[in-house]
Amino acid sequence: MTVRTPTRPPGTGVLRRAAARRDTGAAIPRRTVPWAQRLRRDYPLALMVAPAVILLLLFVYVPLLGNVIAFMDYQPYIPILQSPWAGLSNFTALFTDAAFWAAVVNTLEITAIQLVLFFPVPIALALLIHSLVWPWLRAVVQSVLYLPHFLSWVIVVGFFQQSLGSAGIINRWLRELDIHTINILAEPSTFKLLLSAQVIWKDAGWGTIIFLAALAAIDDSLYEAAAIDGAGAWGRFWHVTLPGIRPIIVLLLILRLGDALSVGFEQIILQRSAVGPGAAEVLDTYVYYHGVIDGNWSTGIAAGLIKGLVGLVLILAANKAAHMLGEQGVYAKS
């Protein structure tokens, strides 16, 4: 192996620039490296990042361009570029479709219900786990509660069916006791509550991770000082614990609001046939059944495009709101 002697010790460029800035107070322009030399220097790194860039191009950016079909009258077996333009007619068709608006309403209702029922559960669980003093008990509880997150929706729905379905174990007990049986899984009126229960079962434990980290990061001396100042358990919770985890709560709330139009697609599509589209049609299932199954490709894409655009606006708005509230938000202000 030949040892190349550097013409200059590494790092002096930076030092020299810094020193110059200190001396004169003016910024010295960065050393410019010719393109050919940069390419020769960086091509191993470029090769490394290439697979990821190709995958993102093929399966995110190019399909994104495919959204122009929303403005076309697309039929399968005709090449996309030869499809006739349709202006905004797909959107007017969409906006006059009652099923679309029903899907929008269902989606928003499910988001709202989950915000109320699901969102506080991981926080409460995290507070409970954090208050455990025996390390082994804490480890056991955490291991068990994280586990459901790794099961597929097919299995979670299966579990609920075995426990709560018409032939499930709960109804068997009810039947033995001669009490009226209920089939919660096929009941449209409580379907949205059922969805929340399933999300809680699957992900509430997993959701505690981030809150537990925030709780562990609170300085113990704050609790000590509060106790000395006469704060009881409630006072310490209100004035130390809650302010300590507030940034995380706000952050997750923003993320959830930005994602308001996505509500457990696999979970819902698995159960749609049991309760019927009236209660279970959400935006994503509308795109699938109306667009893919019924073959209304262009209106389906139009619905998907609207969902994407509204989602983009929501996440930007939620982030802006967080900055205004003085929180850090999803990405830093630049």
Partner: peptide, 22 residues
């Protein structure tokens, strides 16, 4: 630029049908 290219995908998804057609 590449980091930007990668991170921008957080803000939008291509949608189910365009991905299917791809």
């Amino acid at each position: 630029p590449v980091l930007m290219f990668v991170l921008l995908t957080f803000l939008f998804s291509p949608g189910m049908i365009p991905l299917y057609l791809m």
